[in-house]
Amino acid sequence: MKSLLFILSLLLTSAVQAQEAIQVIKFNELESLLAQKQEKVIVANFWASWCAPCVKELPAFEQLHQHQKDVEVVLISLDFVEDMAKAQKILQKKGITAKVVLLDETDYDTWIDQVEPSWQGAIPATLLVSNQTDKRIFLNEAVSYETLLKQLQQLK
């Protein structure tokens, strides 16, 4: 009975969470997010609801969020603000509890180079940042949980 209640409460919280609006941010907020002075490595994944390979790899980032406590996962949706519901629906379906923000900056040429000069704008794209070792790794391809773990080792 107790475990049933626990499962029910879990289901309820996740349902409530999924209905919450995704935080909409501007590029300067993304910059401060990536520059946070902290021990945790930041794994920032650029995705969108319309990008099939992005949606497919979301569980790998959720797994990272659940199992690697020294990592802070941030899923950065590049959906248009008007399409936020599409992104929310996917997050709910995939049971994503990691931090999600929506980057509302559609004049792309003004900021892509500042994330990574070699990035031409194709997604999925993932940036691993260690502000302790000052190392960065940029992956412009779909990634697995295992790949992410391997890349995290390189940051240490």
Binding site: W50, Y108, D109, I112, W119, G121, A122, I123, E141
Partner: peptide
């Protein structure tokens, strides 16, 4: 040159 978000080839 100008960059934009798009679908990966």
């Amino acid at each position: 040159r100008a960059k934009a978000i798009g679908c990966t080839i």
